[in-house]
C-alpha cells in the first residue's frame, strides 16, 4: 500500500476516534440564560404594631430604581452560609461587621417607577436572568424626578410617601410624610432556584406593617394638623425615624419564590 493511502486511512481512523470521543463527552458547562417574573405589592398590616397602634394606610408609594437577585447569603439569618465561589464570580471583600457579599448576580431589572403599594400588584416580566440558586436580593430606592413622580401623589424629589391613620386606645392620628433619602436595601433574603424554563416567579411583598412597626404616634399629639386634618410628620420626630428605619430594613421586603405552575 502506498504512503498516500496509509496517510488517508490514518485520517479516516482518526475521524472515527474523534466521533467516539464526541459522543462520550460532557454536555455543557451547565446553567443557562433565562428570564424570571416578579410581582410587587404592598402588604398592609394585619394587626397592631409592636407599639400597639393600628395603622390603616391610605397611601403608600415607593420609588424603585432596580431589583437584583444574588447568590450571596444574607447576614443574620439562621442558616448556614455557603461559599460563593462559582465559575465566574465577582469577588467582594468582607466588611465589618456584617459580612454581606452579594456574589454573582443572577437576575436584575430596572424598574424606574413609582409603585403604588395600595394599588394592584405590579407585574414585572421577562427579567433577564441566569440559572442558579438565589439567596438574597438588593433593591435600589431612589428619589423620583418630576417625570417619574408625575401622575402620582409622591412629590418629586422624594422616595417614599405614606399617609394613613393610626389608632390606639381611643386616640386617632391621621398622618402623612415623605422621605427624600436614597436607600440601598442589600441582603434581603430571597431564596429560590432560578430554573432554565423561564417560569420562575418571585413575589415581593413590601411589609407596610414593618415600615411603621416601631412608630409611636403619640409623639404627634402636640403637632397641629394641616388644613385637611392630616398631621405632617415633623422631620426630627420619632415617627419619621421609625419610618426611615422601617423602609431601610431589608426584612420589610419579603421575597418569596412562587411554586412552579402545575405544582
Amino acid at each position: 500500500m502506498s504512503d498516500k493511502r496509509w496517510v488517508s486511512w490514518s485520517m479516516v481512523a482518526s475521524a472515527f476516534a474523534m466521533v467516539t470521543v464526541f459522543h462520550c463527552g460532557p454536555v455543557s458547562t451547565g446553567g443557562a440564560r433565562t428570564s424570571i417574573q416578579a410581582s410587587l405589592r404592598g402588604a398592609t398590616p394585619t394587626g397592631p404594631t409592636s407599639a400597639g397602634w393600628s395603622v390603616t394606610y391610605e397611601q403608600a408609594l415607593l420609588s424603585v430604581d432596580s431589583l437584583r437577585w444574588n447568590v450571596g447569603e444574607p447576614v443574620f439569618e439562621a442558616r448556614l452560609r455557603q461559599r460563593l465561589f462559582r465559575a465566574i464570580s465577582i469577588g467582594t471583600a468582607f466588611a465589618h461587621p456584617g459580612h454581606y457579599s452579594p456574589g454573582d448576580a443572577l437576575a436584575d431589572t430596572s424598574v424606574l417607577r413609582v409603585l403604588d403599594l395600595m394599588g394592584p400588584t405590579v407585574q414585572l416580566t421577562s427579567i433577564t436572568a441566569v440559572t442558579g440558586t438565589s439567596n438574597s436580593a438588593t433593591l435600589t430606592l431612589r428619589p423620583a424626578d418630576a417625570a417619574r413622580a408625575a401622575g402620582t401623589t409622591l412629590s418629586a424629589g422624594n422616595t417614599v410617601r405614606v399617609q394613613g391613620t393610626a389608632a390606639k386606645a381611643g386616640a386617632t392620628v391621621r398622618f402623612r410624610m415623605e422621605l427624600a433619602d436614597a436607600f440601598d436595601i442589600a441582603g434581603t433574603p430571597a431564596h429560590g432556584e432560578i430554573r432554565a424554563d423561564g417560569t420562575t416567579s418571585f413575589a415581593i411583598a413590601v411589609d407596610l406593617g414593618l415600615w411603621l412597626d416601631r412608630a409611636d404616634f403619640s409623639t404627634l399629639a402636640m403637632v397641629a394638623p394641616a388644613m385637611d386634618g392630616v398631621v405632617d410628620v415633623p422631620a426630627d420626630g420619632q415617627v419619621r425615624n421609625a419610618l426611615f428605619r422601617g423602609v431601610s430594613n431589608g426584612s420589610a421586603y419579603r421575597v418569596t419564590l412562587l411554586p412552579a405552575s402545575g405544582q
Binding site: S10, M11, S14, M18, G25, P26, V27, S28
Partner: peptide, 30 residues
C-alpha cells in the same frame, strides 16, 4: 491525528486535527 505528505517535489502538505473534551470531575460539566 496528523499527516504529512510530500506528493511532488517542492510541495508539502501538513494536516492535523485534534478533538478533545474536558470536564470537571465533580460535576461532569464541560
Amino acid at each position: 491525528a496528523n499527516a504529512r505528505l510530500a506528493p511532488v517535489r517542492g510541495l508539502v502538505l501538513l494536516a492535523s486535527a485534534t478533538y478533545a473534551r474536558a470536564s470537571f470531575d465533580a460535576t461532569g460539566r464541560a
